[in-house]
Design a protein around this nucleic acid. Structure first.
Lengths: 403, 403
DNA sequence: ATACTTTTGTCGAGCATCATTCAAAAGTAG
DNA sequence: CTACTTTTGAATGATGCTCGACAAAAGTAT
């Protein structure tokens, strides 16, 4: 059925629901509060709040947070989310390397690992390494695997998020419809959430840097070009989970340039990393083979390279202007490896977007570089895992098993 | 905070919640069910379901629905949503005319009115007429105003849906930030929901024609060009409620053609109704002034007109290909007045979209003409009102006032 | 030290829900 | 017509959550 407004269901299960989640959702932000405050915010009786808080404390999810100043009477006692109660894993598996972090429930990094690997070696090999890395990180942070609450994984291709299976991923041979959560759960029996790498990068940027933003687009500019769309505080995955595929959109300047997808004039064939390297080679007679070469040249102040990357920004901006009109976000974050070559890419993007989008859409629009940078992916994967762990349903079921 | 998955809240209020909504949500689709079925579906005890059903019957929202076939014992008695219990108004206010319908809760039309009017006469005049029309429709259908449960209104411009106020609408002078629900509620004290006309057209097409679709785009092609986006079963309104503004996206073939927005090369300046009329005039030396003239010519089989509208389809398709890659819908519906000129527009759109979009995104994509046609707007407005009335919150509060 | 304020913990009452039972109703199969 | 099946309705006690009230705790102001 159609959901016009954000839906709240009155009851989830027929089981006796202690309903500890309602109180807990207020504490999710990490801010300490008193019982009295919670009672007023929820509208529940003080006694009810007290019993809920007790349940949450026995679960370890909430902990006392020092005392507070008295306002003339007995000083209230503060409670807050206990971030150390559980830990989660965030993993960002790229084409040629992987990043994994262990964080607590506030997103604070406890340990991390980075390794070169080849995603095309197939899921068994790659996930085998991931499982080993998770074990290492847990030991490193002196946490037992029973404290691990969830695992979030980002993959470089389309993913059916509900099942955690990659769907026809172009650069991940052997991964098609592979049951990623199934394999990981053989080693760690916790919820495993899988999503597209661009989607989790959008999550990573949103949480932490744009806490009150509900509509954000993350643009990854690297070998490929893709977008992660958060609209109305929800990740938009589309009907087949391929939403945000900007790489093969036609751009005016594209002409008949052939693209690896078989079409011509694609954005990626014009502004993707390999395309920029080729364009520079044509200009200077160089022999660049990777995006990294372009980035290094731009950083060193090479005028041709700056020219090329700024033009790439304009081409991306052309497509982005359409996206901005269509989605109407309030923040657009530019990330990916090519975004690390200074402000030139961003300048080109801004130039076109602000010129080509409607005033109403750009009035409050901010186009900013990624803050998390290389870590946007892992941070987002961790955020995805955390928000699953702290979701009302999870808290509800957890509190059922508490005495 | 960020919502990764569809959120279910355990409890909405601290008041004693009879929780009749849970049972009711299963009956929303209009399908009749037995008490036993409801008990199994909800997991509630049979006795509980019985009492819930009784509450809903005294409210009139649910009614007996004949008997069912026996499976060897006493035949079960069926219950179903009683669509006649309440009525709602759907209104589609355009630039030069208005459509209003009165429907029951199943969306069945009970009465309708159509009138020429000028939206630029301002909100008092227009809404005054609307209020009068609602009264007439109620009398016509022999319904009292106490049976009216909600009013849905579509307006031709950006609307802040939460407050029901138009925001900087280009073609609605005097309406900026006007409190539309406030004025209407002075006459009819029921919830008044206001939204952009394209958004409600998307709703209108989805409900009824695409019941199980979660990702749909509606494209209105008329004087302007706009899109209504439903993604994950939710209407996407964007940060300022201006999402879906496709009219002023740049198209490759646009060149330096000036647009009324001040920019050049906009889609609307190339494929909007006035642009098509102008293009035809230039070709044939005619004196067309309106979209209707173009439509008539196309219908009469004029080859120049067909050529022009097919090219418009290609230009729209160019933009749509980007949208399809970005949003990944499973259905794209083409509506608006120019869509009624036969299949030529659609053919042009299909031609480009299927060529320019990724195979993965177009694999299950259907591009279809609007079924509701001129009525998509009012139908959608009615749907918007109905789904508010039948929402869990509304049912919950309604059942509180029942004995 | 005393009065006042504010928060906290405890306790019983109220209420909705649940599982169960029993009897009646309304069919079908023989 | 009788036996069997299945659903329904009413009644029951048990359970568990929520509320409100009251008393104790822990400070501050005089």
């Amino acid at each position: 059925m159609l959901k016009i407004e954000s839906e709240k269901q009155a009851r989830t299960s027929a089981l006796p629901a202690p309903g500890a989640s309602e109180v807990f959702q207020l504490l999710r932000d990490g801010q300490p509060r008193t019982r009295a405050e919670l009672a007023q915010l929820t509208g529940l009786a003080r006694s009810t709040v007290a019993s809920r808080v007790e349940t949450l404390m026995t679960l370890g999810l909430v902990a006392p947070y020092g005392g507070a100043v008295s306002t003339g009477g007995r000083p209230p006692s503060l409670f807050a989310l206990n971030p150390g109660a559980r830990v989660v894993i965030g993993a960002d598996l790229g084409a040629t390397h992987a990043l994994v972090i262990l964080t607590d429930l506030s997103g604070t990094e406890l340990a991390s690992a980075r390794q070169s690997m080849t995603i095309s070696d197939g899921p068994e090999t790659v996930l085998g390494w991931l499982v080993a890395a998770i074990g290492t990180l847990l030991r490193e942070a002196k946490r037992s695997s029973s404290e691990l609450a969830a695992i979030g994984i980002g993959l470089p291709g389309p993913v059916e998020h509900e099942t955690g299976r990659p769907i026809n991923p172009p650069i991940m041979p052997g991964w098609d419809r592979f049951d990623v959560p199934g394999l990981v759960q053989r080693s760690f029996n916790v919820p495993v959430l899988v999503d597209n790498d661009v989607n989790i990068m959008a999550l990573g940027e949103l949480s932490g840097n744009w806490p009150d933003t509900t509509d954000l687009m993350f643009i990854k500019v690297a070998t490929g070009i893709g977008a992660g769309i958060i609209s109305g505080s929800m990740l938009q995955r589309g009907a087949q989970g391929t939403a945000g595929d900007l790489g093969h959109v036609r751009v005016p300047r594209g002409g008949e340039i052939p693209c690896r997808c078989g079409n011509t004039g694609c954005l990626e064939a014009l502004a993707g990393g390999p395309a920029l390297a080729a364009a520079l080679n044509a200009l200077t007679g160089g022999e660049l083979t990777s995006s990294q070469g372009v980035i290094d040249l731009v950083r060193s102040g090479d005028r041709d390279a700056i020219q090329v990357i700024r033009q790439a920004g304009r081409d991306i901006g052309d497509v982005l202007a359409t996206c901005v009109n269509l989605i109407n976000p309030s923040v657009v974050v530019i990330g990916g490896s090519l975004a690390q070559a200074g402000e030139h890419l961003l300048a080109g993007i801004r130039e076109v977007v602000y010129r080509r989008s409607l005033p109403l859409a750009t009035e409050h629009l901010r186009i900013v570089p990624s803050v998390a940078g290389q870590n946007a992916g892992v941070r987002g994967a961790s955020v995805m895992a955390i928000s699953h762990v702290l979701s009302p349903e999870s808290i509800e079921t957890a509190s059922l098993s508490a005495p």
